[in-house]
Design a protein around this nucleic acid. Structure first.
Length: 569
RNA sequence: GCGCCUGUAGCUCAGUGGAUUAGAGCAUCUGACUACGGAUCAGAAGGCCGGGGGUUCGAAUCCUCUCAGGCGCUCCA
């Protein structure tokens, strides 16, 4: 809660206490006073349904209670309040005096790029693990969505004062990558003319593997045929992983996502932590042997079935290194860990949480969110299959390539990020390629960027006319008296609380919506009111301050999303 | 069968238990400046918020049942 709300809160609280003292309100204790958002200017700047909440306790009609509370507030005694209304069922609507509105502009001018940030999360060490795609193929669209969301969440958490980092967990060990190596081997031998080879069930069939095998043949010939099969497969596996990883990293960088830490499952396995985990589980009685395997008692934690942690062949299932990995995160000192998982990992959530609980870490230490699936829809409205196991799928790079053809590389990234970010994580997302490509110019991201570019353009125009913006201290903000100007300022004032809410709720999509709303006030204002008016320089300078503020907030918001704020388009 | 997600305007989606008229974008229809950038703006039309029941002064929102769609329930990762 910011300073203004705190001040209003105190005024309301003392009014209620005064009413109780005067014997007009029969309540035993004053509850926390809630504020409700005001949707229209008629509802003032701050509204509270407190009278409705007190109705039962006080055994009075909400409207009467509101009247009593308001009676004990003297608007003239508080500079902050311009007017108080009682509306609807008993809402108390508070209109702030213009000076407090203008304070927002002073705050923005003073904080600039830092406007919107706070220190609420100070001291929190947060790690967000996201994308973490298998190193067996190019990144698909869901990974792109996860990349955009994770990257933005880190930005948001850092904005509220946390120390948050981006981490990618590479599944470079286990059965999947083994089969990956085998698939490369098959392709390699195929490329050398061996016939009758078929990619087995569970193998990787993507064309990119044929191309990769072909490259090996072209650069190194058939030398590897001399090796034993196991040796060759292991070698190809490692070569393949390194190749794919580089590719994934390049795609992510192109998408504007740079991970701080790349963790390796293989390294975790080699660290001895899995053995440590097993030891702890065993000591706590969570394990038992059956059917030749070792099982974890998931049912002790309320799940409906137990799960295998050590297979009958002596190998760990992926659960063990994953649990060890989370233990490792804990040991590294993170106070909060957030995992963004793909839609096919739902079953993993309770397992992971139970393991973490079994290792004695706090319940709320690990947060897991599913980034829901993205369905690519083609012109006919048919869904395209994006499975990595199938031959063809749509990659993040292909998406950017196709968008770039019509809107250019930078905007392609911007548009894709915006599309991925504009919906709640839990919402399934239909990505209509035709629409994204052919109607790119009608995309909401352009609307926002255009608003920013327009702001910049005003200053350019001003410069041509010899108008230099004045420092805010020398400007008469009173001249910002149009209703739309007040509406704009109120919207600008919301930004820090939107950032805070968005970060705390891990809901990145609130930022795109906010920016779109802000742009939706700016554009009409721009159309109706001329900023540069040589005949009235006082007004011009006041409006330039407003435009500067809008520009700052748009830029700060877009920056959080990893989307560019162009000065011209 | 069990679990998770989703269901809001023709389409894609926002919506924190609170306000008369449930909001945007796209699509549709009608309009706009000799103007700081028309990638803009003004307006119209479009809704039993999947359905039933419950809690409440008040429910798109909470609870419950139910219907529909998606996904997950491997000694795969």
């Amino acid at each position: 809660m910011d300073a203004i709300k705190t001040e209003v809160y105190n005024i309301l609280e003392s009014a209620i206490h005064a009413a109780v003292a005067a014997g007009e309100l029969a309540i035993s204790e004053v509850p926390t006073i809630p504020f409700s958002p005001t949707k229209t200017p008629e509802h003032g700047d701050i509204a509270t349904p407190i009278a409705l909440g007190l109705a039962k306790q006080a055994r009075m009609a909400p409207r009467n209670i509101a009247e009593i509370i308001v009676k004990h507030i003297d608007p003239d005694a508080h500079a902050i309040i311009r007017q108080i209304d009682i509306a609807g069922a008993g809402f108390i609507n508070i209109h702030l005096s213009d000076n407090y509105l203008y304070d927002t502009l002073h705050t923005i001018a003073a904080m600039q790029a830092a406007y919107g940030t706070c220190e609420k999360g100070a001291g929190k060490q947060v790690q967000i693990e996201f994308v973490s795609a298998n190193p067996t193929g190019p990144l698909n669209i869901v990974s792109g969505r996860a990349a955009a969301v994770g990257d933005t969440l880190v930005n948001l958490l850092n904005a509220i004062g946390c120390n948050a980092i981006r981490e990618f967990y590479v599944n470079d060990a286990g059965g999947q990558v083994q089969r990956f190596g085998e698939s490369i081997d098959d392709r390699y031998r195929q490329a050398l003319g061996e016939e009758g080879l078929e990619i087995p069930e569970g193998g990787y069939q993507g064309e990119y593997l044929q191309a990769f095998a072909q490259t090996i043949v072209e650069t190194e010939g058939d030398a590897y045929l001399q090796l034993e099969t196991d040796e060759r497969v292991a070698l190809f596996r490692d070569k393949g992983i390194a190749h794919i990883l580089t590719q994934q990293r390049t795609s992510l960088e192109r998408f504007g996502v740079n991970f701080d830490v790349w963790s390796s499952e293989k390294a975790i396995r080699d660290s001895g932590k899995p053995e440590e985990i097993i030891r702890v589980f065993r000591e706590n009685g969570y394990l038992y042997e059956a059917e030749g395997a070792t099982w974890f008692r998931m049912t002790d934690f309320g799940d409906d079935k137990d799960c295998v942690v050590i297979k009958s062949d002596g190998e760990y299932t992926y659960f063990v290194p994953d649990a060890a990995y989370h233990r490792d995160k804990f040991d590294r000192g993170f106070t909060t860990v957030i995992d963004l998982l793909g839609p096919d990992h739902q079953g993993h959530i309770t397992h992971l949480k139970n393991f973490v609980k079994g290792l004695g870490m706090p319940d709320d230490w690990l947060e897991i969110f599913i980034i829901q699936q993205v369905n690519l829809v083609n012109a006919e409205g048919n869904r395209l299959d994006m499975s990595k196991r199938r031959g063809q799928f749509y990659t993040l790079d292909t998406l950017i390539d196709e968008l770039a053809e019509t809107v250019g590389e930078q905007f392609a990234v911007d548009v894709a990020r915006y599309f991925f970010l504009m919906r709640a994580n839990s919402s399934h997302l239909d990505f209509n390629m035709e629409l994204a490509i052919t109607h790119a110019s009608e995309n909401p991201v352009f609307y926002i960027q255009y608003a920013h570019a327009r702001c910049c353009s005003i200053f350019e125009q001003g410069a041509e006319q010899g108008i230099t913006p004045k420092p805010i201290q020398e400007v008469s903000l009173k001249r910002l008296s149009e209703p739309m100007e007040h509406e704009l300022i109120r919207k600008l004032a919301e930004f820090p609380s939107i950032v805070l809410l968005s970060a705390e709720a891990r809901e990145a999509h609130r930022i795109p919506h906010y920016l779109h709303e802000l742009s939706g006030i700016f554009h009409p204002y721009y159309n109706q009111h001329r900023v540069l008016d040589p005949a009235d320089m006082e007004k011009t300078h006041a409006r330039l301050i407003l435009i500067q503020s809008v520009q700052s907030v748009l830029k700060n918001g877009l920056t959080l999303l990893g989307i560019s704020a162009p000065t011209s388009m």
